[in-house]
C-alpha cells in the first residue's frame, strides 16, 4: 500500500519587493503511512503551513516531489481530493453566510449529499448554532466549522492545521476524542499543532520541521527514546557529598539548587547502593523521561533563555542530508533525526 503522504526534497522560496527573498522550505521530506495519527511540529515560521499549502496545491513548489495516496501532487490532486479533508491555518469563511449555508455550498460543489451537512454539524457540536452568521462565531466555533467542512467528504486522510486553535479546554478534549475516533475508524490524520502535550497524547508518529528542513521523524516513542539520557533526579541531605560519590562512580552528575541529576544510569539500584555504602541516604529517586515538549525545544533549539527575547526565526537550521551530517537513530523503527553539526543559529 502506498504512503498516504510522501514528500521528498520540497523547496519553496517566497520573494517580495519589500520582504525580499525568504526560503520557506529547503529540501523538506515527510512520510505519512496509512492509519497513522501523525503530528507535524515546528516553531512559528518553520514551514509547516507552507508544506500543507503546497501539498494541497495552494502554493506552487519550486522543486521537490509530493504524492498523495501514491498519486503525484498537485498534478493528480483532483483525482484524490475526494479522499482527503483539510483545514489549513486559520479558518476563513464568508462572514455573511451561516455555518449551514457554508457547508451546504461546499457539499454541493463536492457532490456530497446534503444530509451529511447535519451529521458533521452534530459531530463538531455546532448543530444549535448552524443557522447563525459565521461572522458572529468565535474563533473556536469557526475552528469547529472548519473541521466540519473537512469531515464532510468522509475523508480517508484528514489534514488539520492547528485544529485546537481558539478552542476552549472542553473543545480541545472533544477535538482529541474526535481525532482518536477517526483514527480508530481507519482515517489517517496529519495534525499540526503547538500544543505538544496534545500531540504526544494522540499521535503515534511525528515529523519535526525547523527552518524548512526536517529535524526528526518517526514513531513518537522512538523520537522520545532517542532523547532519553537515562537521567534520574535525586534528593539527599548532603548534596555535595553525594555528588562526589556519584562522580567517583563514573556517572555524569549535574548539581541543581535542591537536587542532583544523574545521567547514563542503567540501574538505579547501583546508585542507591553506592550512596548507601557511604552513609548517604536517598530521599527521592525519580526517573526523568523526556516529553515531546523538551525534545521539540531541544531539536529546534527554541528553549527560552532568561533575559534573551527569542526572535521568530531563531531556531536551529539543520544541515542538509547532502552534507552527511544527518544522524539516523533507531533506523529499524523508522526514526530519523537530523542534527546540526555546528548548531547553526538562524541568521537574518
Amino acid at each position: 500500500m502506498p504512503a498516504v503522504i510522501q514528500i521528498d526534497g520540497l523547496r519553496k522560496t517566497f520573494t517580495g519587493v519589500r520582504r525580499g527573498r525568504r526560503v520557506a522550505l529547503d529540501g523538506f521530506d515527510m512520510l505519512v503511512e496509512p492509519g497513522q495519527v501523525h503530528g507535524f511540529l515546528g516553531p512559528n515560521g518553520s514551514g509547516k503551513t507552507t508544506t500543507l499549502r503546497t501539498l494541497l496545491g495552494l502554493v506552487q513548489a519550486d522543486s521537490g516531489r509530493m504524492a498523495l495516496f501514491g498519486e503525484p501532487a498537485p498534478q493528480r490532486l483532483p483525482a484524490v481530493v475526494g479522499r482527503l479533508g483539510a483545514i489549513v491555518e486559520s479558518p476563513q469563511f464568508f462572514g455573511n453566510f451561516s455555518g449551514r449555508r457554508t457547508l451546504r455550498l461546499l457539499a454541493v460543489a463536492g457532490g456530497v449529499p446534503p444530509a451529511r451537512v447535519d451529521e458533521v454539524l452534530e459531530q463538531v457540536g455546532l448543530r444549535d448554532r448552524a443557522d447563525e452568521r459565521v461572522k458572529g462565531y468565535s474563533l473556536g466555533m469557526k475552528q469547529r466549522l472548519a473541521v466540519a467542512s473537512a469531515l464532510l467528504k468522509r475523508p480517508e486522510l484528514l489534514i488539520l492545521d492547528e485544529p485546537a486553535n481558539g478552542l476552549d479546554p472542553a473543545g480541545i478534549r472533544e477535538m482529541r476524542d474526535l481525532m482518536r475516533g477517526l483514527a480508530a475508524a481507519g482515517v489517517t490524520v496529519l495534525v499540526s499543532s503547538h500544543i505538544l502535550a496534545e500531540i504526544q497524547q494522540i499521535c503515534d508518529h511525528v515529523t519535526i520541521i525547523s527552518r524548512g528542513r526536517r529535524v526528526a521523524a518517526g514513531p513518537v516513542d522512538a523520537v522520545l527514546a532517542g532523547f532519553d539520557h537515562r537521567e534520574f533526579r535525586i534528593r539527599v541531605a548532603d548534596q555535595t557529598r553525594a555528588a562526589e560519590i556519584i562522580a567517583s562512580a563514573g556517572l555524569p552528575v549535574t548539581t541543581h539548587a535542591d537536587h542532583l541529576v544523574v545521567a547514563d544510569l542503567d540501574d538505579p539500584a547501583r546508585l542507591s547502593q553506592a550512596l548507601g555504602e557511604q552513609g548517604v541516604w536517598l530521599r527521592e529517586l525519580t526517573p526523568l523521561t523526556p516529553d515531546l515538549e523538551s525534545v521539540f525545544l531541544e531539536l529546534t533549539d527554541t528553549r527560552p533563555r532568561p533575559g534573551v527575547p527569542r526572535q521568530v526565526d531563531d531556531s536551529v537550521r539543520p544541515d542538509r542530508p547532502a552534507d552527511e551530517s544527518q544522524i539516523t537513530l533507531g533506523a529499524d523503527d523508522g526514526l530519523q533525526i537530523t542534527v546540526s553539526a555546528d548548531d547553526e543559529r538562524a541568521q537574518p
Partner: peptide
C-alpha cells in the same frame, strides 16, 4: 474579490483543486 480575501476561494480549491 471577496472570495479571494475571505478565504472562500481557498476553501473551494481544497474541494476542487482545478
Amino acid at each position: 474579490g471577496a472570495d479571494l480575501t475571505s478565504g472562500g476561494m481557498t476553501n473551494l480549491l481544497l474541494w476542487r483543486p482545478q
